[in-house]
């Protein structure tokens, strides 16, 4: 019975996703439907009985999130030519830029989050 519960819950999350996509198209928003759906669910979760309706489905999908990206990552095979001649330069650029973003954003947040612990950001609370 657990599997039916899971399917029904994922179905419900899918409906929220479809609503998000619908709203995005309706108002020509720059935010994708999935993220609008996330905001909708976030709002719905404030109503406690609703939490049990999606709890198992949510933890299942979040747990296997990496698997769900595989069809998209396999798509890189269509662009192998990118790794030849001058295209390889763009791959290096993307990699260096990714290193910069990860280093600097996590560094800035560690500095500011750690400061918070020491009470320096108390005025923001």
């Amino acid at each position: 019975m657990k599997i039916f519960n899971l399917i029904w819950q994922i179905g419900l999350l899918y409906v929220i996703y479809v609503i998000g996509t619908f709203l995005q198209k309706l108002f020509h928003l720059m935010i994708p439907g999935s993220i609008i759906g996330m905001l909708i669910l976030f709002a719905l979760l404030h109503y406690e009985p609703f939490q049990n309706l999606v709890k198992d489905g949510c933890s299942f999908l979040v747990k296997h999130l990496a698997l769900l990206f595989i069809p998209a990552t396999v798509g890189v095979m269509e662009y192998f030519s990118l790794f030849q001649s001058k295209g390889i330069l763009t791959v290096f650029i993307v990699i260096i830029s990714t290193v910069l973003v990860m280093s600097i954003s996590s560094f800035v947040s560690q500095m500011t989050a750690a400061k918070k612990k020491a009470g320096c950001w108390a005025e923001w609370e």
Partner: peptide, 9 residues
């Protein structure tokens, strides 16, 4: 799509 929605949890 639904997995991104699930991140709300």
């Amino acid at each position: 799509g639904p997995a991104v929605v699930a991140l709300a949890f």
